[in-house]
C-alpha cells in the first residue's frame, strides 16, 4: 500500500478511534487486496511504510464483497461498480479478504 495512504489510514484511526474506521478497497485482484488488507490490520508486510509493525486491526472490505454491496443503492452500484464486478475475480478477492479479517481484524 502507498506510503502516503498508510499514513492517512493511521491518522484516521488515531483521530476517530480504530473501532470507528472501515477501510474499503478497490484492488483489482485477490493478492493485492490481501496485501492492502494485511497492511491496515496486521501492519505493512513490506516493512516500508508508517504501518510497519502497527497492528491497527481495522475492519476492511473490498467494494465487491456482498457485505458492502448490500449497503449501497443498487442503481448507483450498477453504475459505478457493475462493470468491474463482471471483470474481477470476486470469489478470489472475497476469500482472500475473509482470510485476512479472520486472522487480524479486531473489530
Amino acid at each position: 500500500m502507498d506510503l502516503e495512504n498508510q499514513k492517512r489510514v493511521k491518522e484516521f484511526a488515531e483521530e476517530y478511534g480504530p473501532e470507528n474506521v472501515v477501510v474499503i478497497l478497490g484492488a483489482a485482484e485477490g493478492e493485492g487486496a490481501g496485501l492492502a488488507a494485511e497492511t491496515v490490520t496486521n501492519g505493512d508486510p513490506t516493512f516500508a511504510g508508517p504501518l510497519t509493525g502497527v497492528q491497527l486491526g481495522l475492519s476492511v472490505y473490498h467494494i465487491c464483497e456482498e457485505e458492502i454491496k448490500a449497503e449501497v443503492d443498487p442503481a448507483i452500484y450498477e453504475e459505478q461498480v457493475g462493470m468491474m464486478e463482471m471483470v474481477l475475480d470476486v470469489d478470489d478477492i472475497s476469500s482472500e479478504m475473509k482470510d485476512i479479517r479472520e486472522q487480524y481484524c479486531k473489530y
Binding site: A28, E29, G32, L35, G82, M83, M84, V87
Partner: peptide, 28 residues
C-alpha cells in the same frame, strides 16, 4: 500483486461492450 494490466484493461473494455449489448458475455 498488480496483476496483468493490459489483460485487466481488455476485460474492462469487453465488460463495457457487454453492458452496451455489443458483445456476448461469454466473449469477455
Amino acid at each position: 500483486g498488480a496483476g496483468d494490466v493490459p489483460a485487466a484493461n481488455y476485460k474492462m473494455i469487453a465488460a463495457l461492450a457487454v453492458k452496451r449489448g455489443e458483445l456476448e458475455r461469454k466473449d469477455v
